[in-house]
Design a protein around this nucleic acid. Structure first.
Lengths: 349, 349
DNA sequence: ATGAAAGCGCTAACAC
DNA sequence: GTGTTAGCGCTTTCAT
């Protein structure tokens, strides 16, 4: 019952009165300006500590018309390590730089994306990390053009650095790997061409087909929006579609969850009845029995790069230095062969 | 190259000049005050739209000394659906209420937790959702006492509503289930008593042991901090420790990931050599073969309650109404029997 | 090295 | 209904 009505917190004016100095001096001392007598500055800091002073970041940011108090982190979902791991790591790294990270979910909807962005611009964020929707609204583009942006996982043609898993080679490798095992009829379940990473992964598959000398007509492509549900449904359809494929490659973390489940439900044994290559989230694909052959992405590395790029971009804005290089910064993904891939049924030893 | 130097964004004063009205009128119109002529208000809104006006949330929040512009979401990690799913859902729900959610990661460290909280108080958050560390610093307690708090997954004795998985019964059920299958020697891998949810789950286990009439001395307890690594290590030690248990129950999502992997690595077949009950994350435990018997928690429901409680608490602050009931709000978790539990090796048919 | 004062962009009394 | 004005709590010239 002590402090029921929450007492207005101490501010610079109050402390200035306490110490018989001006608010300017308080501010300077607290911000480590060199132009304050050492001894005075120490006294001020001690007093602030004692009174439990916490600077009002709103006022600070409002005053210093350019501030890195806040940044945005705008993503479609958090259902996958690709987002959750990166979000956590970015929040940690940015916080160390005195920046708070506002989480905004678009659910992959361009309208929602725009609204979230508007709100973020409203709080005068210093910059943002975004995993953009497929078709940005024009208004969205306009907003993004105004501030430092780092694109994550996807690119949308705006003029910004991006950080991406370099997975084209890994997907190529997956096809080559399967071909080497004897597979000639392969299905690929991936994300739409319109998604920048979908296009790249698809190219990886195509390259693999060419490199392995497979007949493209015997490769089935199925491209759907990356959700677990879609992965499950599409896989079920593929499996019951009467197509002759003996191996399935999945090119997305979300799709992989659903696909793996659909395969299990179908009763297919891995790799005897079907070979399966999944994408992402190593922590739990290894739990499957057999452990799944997968394309592994180092998400923590991605996160570090994203955070570093953003902080660089902010520095650049403030100092007038050139911003970090536009264009993709890639982190190598690799094919990790485990137990879910083997020779096709016909060619069993 | 068009608008290189980013033009200062339009504000109320500029629009006031444009339209020959006062800033107050602008503000009123934009905030839907009834005391503005319909026709004028429309004209103002149209103009704002046309000029791409976006209100400065910092200024707004600073001015309206109490505002729900920001809330905090303070969690140890995001490595598990228990956090990532709830974070996403809360961000969505809060955003619909005009509130932005700042993500802060404590890594389960009391010092970091305090710093994050200080920073959040610095931005004058309206309230927060927190999954507190085990031993709150006194300073932390003091901060938390000053604002609306909703505790998530864990409680720390502060005077706040909390939202928790009601899993005691499910853990009891798991023991009863195993006992019914014939197990008498069971190991439980859980989180420490000091973690509020750890204590509850432990109690669930104890109740199960009593209810099933098992000999408590034949139950092995191993309590460790909830990380995947710990789950893996502890399980490995249990499996190589020469203890006679024939079933393992795991009482945490993170621990379950590591435990499942350690079991797989050990070569034990489920359920022939060992019965296993895991906790959480249904999406992928079903992928294991056999699908794992698990304790299932409806995280989306948890998230909705958390968001609702927080918004209620904010309303209460503003209106002076009584805040939402302190104490736990529970969402029922359930035992979901699948293929990883069966009769113990000795009693195989 | 320190102080006085002018904002930052908005809201909210208080006048008219 | 609408305008005037005084802040919100801080930073930052410009003086001294």
């Amino acid at each position: 019952m002590a402090s029921r009505g929450r007492r207005r917190s101490v501010g610079v004016v109050e402390m200035a009165r306490d110490l018989g100095v001006s608010t300017a001096t308080i501010s300077r001392a607290l911000n480590g300006s060199p132009s304050v007598r050492r001894e005075l500055a120490d006294r001020i800091r001690a007093h602030a500590q004692a009174r439990g002073y916490v600077a009002n970041r709103l006022a600070r940011a409002l005053s210093a018309s350019t501030s890195r108090a806040f940044v945005g982190f705008v993503i479609p979902y958090v259902d996958t390590l690709a987002y959750s791991a990166v979000a956590a790591e970015c929040a940690s790294l940015l916080s160390a730089a005195g920046t708070q990270m506002i989480l905004a979910i678009t659910e992959n909807d361009a309208e929602r994306e725009y609204e979230q962005l508007r709100d973020l611009v409203g709080t005068r964020i210093a910059g943002l990390v975004i995993s953009p929707t497929t078709h940005l609204l024009d208004e969205t583009r306009r907003l993004l053009a105004e501030l430092p942006v780092v694109e994550l996982h996807r690119v949308s043609g705006i003029d910004a650095p991006s950080v991406l898993a370099d997975d084209e080679q890994a997907l190529t490798d997956s096809i080559v790997h399967l071909a080497a095992l004897g597979h000639t009829d392969i299905a690929y379940l991936g994300t739409p061409r319109e998604l920048s990473n979908g296009a790249i992964r698809l190219r990886g598959i195509r390259r693999g087909v060419a490199k392995a000398g497979l007949d493209p007509r015997r490769i089935t492509m199925r491209l759907v929006e990356p959700t677990q549900e879609n992965g499950r449904d599409a896989t079920r359809e593929l499996l019951t579609g009467g197509l002759p494929f003996t191996a399935l490659v999945v090119g997305s973390g979300s799709l992989s969850v659903g696909a793996a489940d659909a395969v299990r439900c179908s009763g297919r044994r891995l790799p005897d009845d079907l070979s399966l290559v999944v994408y992402g989230d190593p922590a739990w694909f290894v739990l499957a029995d057999p452990p799944l052959t997968m394309i592994q992405v180092p998400y923590a590395g991605l996160a570090r790069i994203a955070a570093r790029l953003l902080l660089c971009a902010l520095d650049a804005r403030e100092t007038g230095n050139p911003p970090p290089a536009t264009g993709p910064h890639r982190v190598l993904a690799g094919l990790c062969v485990a137990g879910s891939t083997g020779p096709p049924p016909g060619r069993r030893p």
